[in-house]
Amino acid sequence: MRINGLPLDEEKSELRKIIVANSGYKWILKCKPQKTCRWTKPELGEFKLSLDASLDENSGGLGGIIRNDEGMAITIFSTNTPSEEIFELELTAIRMGINRAQEMNIKRLRIEDNSLLVVNIIQGLSPIPWKKHMMVHQILETLKEFEAWRISHTWREADYLSKRNYICKGLNFPLPLATLELLEIINSDRSGFEYIRM
């Protein structure tokens, strides 16, 4: 049965309606509830480093943002890189982020990354790929220099900066020069705005 003149998707939808209408049954449609997530402030005296990396056909990008326990951004960094491996980009972002935190004399650091594999490797829950063993070892040695640190996984939507890929577009600027939209996103995170998980 064809319904002439309709795009394929619309045609399938119309066919479903016809089948349901003529089936003689009452249909109850159940929709899954939307799941939400939000960015949370670090504990008192702690700083949060949110990281992201991206890779396309031409190049890779990575970056991060460090916020204090009030949710205020104190530094944003990013860079482009020729790397062809997203896993390497994620590790490089962590290394850059913790180095930036050391430069700012941060003692207690909470790291959030949307790569569950990277988080598990840093936590010692997953084996380290042999090609990246030295890189992971260097990160772990640097983390020992902090008074306290922890790393956890975050849903991509929980850090809207990452979702919008702001930190992967070469935004290497002092905070006063941040765009209005970027500052609005940071303020939304601070206020506990709920994002819908995709």
Rank of each mutant, 00 (worst) to 15 (best):
N4M: 01
E11Y: 01
S13G: 07
E14D: 07
R16Q: 14
V20W: 06
I28V: 13
L29H: 07
L29C: 09
K32E: 14
P33Y: 09
Q34F: 13
C37V: 15
C37P: 00
R38V: 04
T40P: 01
K41V: 07
E43K: 11
S50K: 04
S54G: 14
D56F: 03
E57Q: 11
G64R: 03
R67Y: 01
E70T: 13
G71V: 07
T81N: 10
I86N: 09
F87P: 01
E90V: 06
E90P: 03
L91S: 06
I94Y: 12
G97K: 06
G97V: 13
G97P: 07
I98T: 10
I98Y: 02
N99A: 13
M104N: 03
N105C: 11
R108Y: 02
V119M: 05
N120H: 09
I122G: 08
L125F: 04
P129V: 12
K131L: 14
K131N: 14
K131F: 12
K132T: 15
K132P: 02
H137I: 02
E141I: 12
A148W: 12
S152N: 12
T154H: 07
A158W: 04
Y160Q: 08
R164G: 12
Y166T: 07
K169I: 06
K169M: 09
G170I: 12
G170W: 10
F173C: 10
P176V: 05
P176I: 07
E181D: 12
R190W: 03
F193S: 05
E194V: 08
